[in-house]
Design a protein around this nucleic acid. Structure first.
Lengths: 160, 160
DNA sequence: TTTTATTACGTAACTAGTTACGCAAATATA
DNA sequence: TATATTTGCGTAACTAGTTACGTAATAAAA
């Protein structure tokens, strides 16, 4: 049960966060495969967004998810290929590609939602013994937003 | 300052962890580039391990880091290419590739360490206002280890 | 001793993100 | 109105992980 990343304390903390994140990501993919869902992790975020907003652009989505726009392009490309998302060029601005959920999406959503809800329940279960986790994660996000890991480390280097 | 992933609460929590992890990863790479360090994120873990252990195999490293062995193969391959790691076939078992730090590594380690220490300090600063974070992260790791995200979600699906 | 199982590790093919770049459309400015 | 700047989005090339598979060497079992 000994874990090197834990042993080295703060030197391993960031890697532990990544390891946890990766583990859950791959486990989620595994889940989708097992239950036969034709979707991938992260897509639920796009479904949620397009359910709320009717029609959005890639740029809108990348802003909402705080993810680079090429990452969103890739996700949407796959969702389009599977027929979950439709695009329509904006009448007033031909650069803008308006995205919206297809009928197939709307038909499947109740089914998807059962699985997403089960996943949300898992998340709740996981942090049930960690009452400060959400709040402290928010703190981390805020701090990183105020000053990047890089800039903080550059400053810390100078201080030595 | 509004954030969709935070708004949807537990449905966005896992993605927030990934986002944070990614952000720090890329920021670290950025840091290395800026200060002109010829190494990549994660390599410090291998340096730490090989400093402590003299000689290890890929399998040893993947067990210690709890990372797949192909991932370690890739890291070591790059570190060898840069001349930081040397390999020697085990005399008693020709399958085993014994890894150890090169003289170049040993010469550079004090220099690297200054930067790694600055990074550790950053981590400490970041979680300074999150006194329960390490402990609660450990809880998450333990729970996931006991039962995977997938299995938990499958169970939660049945309960509905 | 021969066969079978396991181990070590390398590679291939995949997902999932990033930065950097280019181009066309729209907007702002001279 | 002509030019410069910004915006939207697509692609390329990269990092960093995974699972699946193959092969040779060792260890275990018949």
């Amino acid at each position: 049960m000994n874990d090197f990343l834990s042993e080295i304390e703060y030197a391993g903390l960031i890697s532990r966060i990544k390891r946890l994140s990766d583990e859950i990501l791959y486990s989620t993919r595994d889940y989708y495969t097992t239950v036969g869902l034709d979707i991938e992790p992260n897509w639920h975020l796009v479904f949620y967004l397009l359910e709320r907003n009717e029609s959005m652009t890639i740029t809108d989505i990348s802003l909402e998810l705080r993810m680079s726009h090429p990452a969103c392009v890739k996700i949407i490309k796959k969702m389009k290929k599977k027929g979950y998302v439709l695009t329509k060029t904006d009448d007033n601005d031909s650069r803008r590609q308006l995205l919206q959920l297809s009928d197939k999406s709307k038909a499947q959503l109740p089914f998807f939602r059962k699985h997403w809800d089960a996943g949300i329940k898992t998340t709740e279960d996981l942090i049930a013994d960690s009452p400060h986790f959400v709040e402290e994660l928010k703190q981390l996000e805020l701090k990183i937003e105020q000053k990047s890991y890089k800039d903080r480390t550059l400053d810390n280097l100078k201080l030595e």
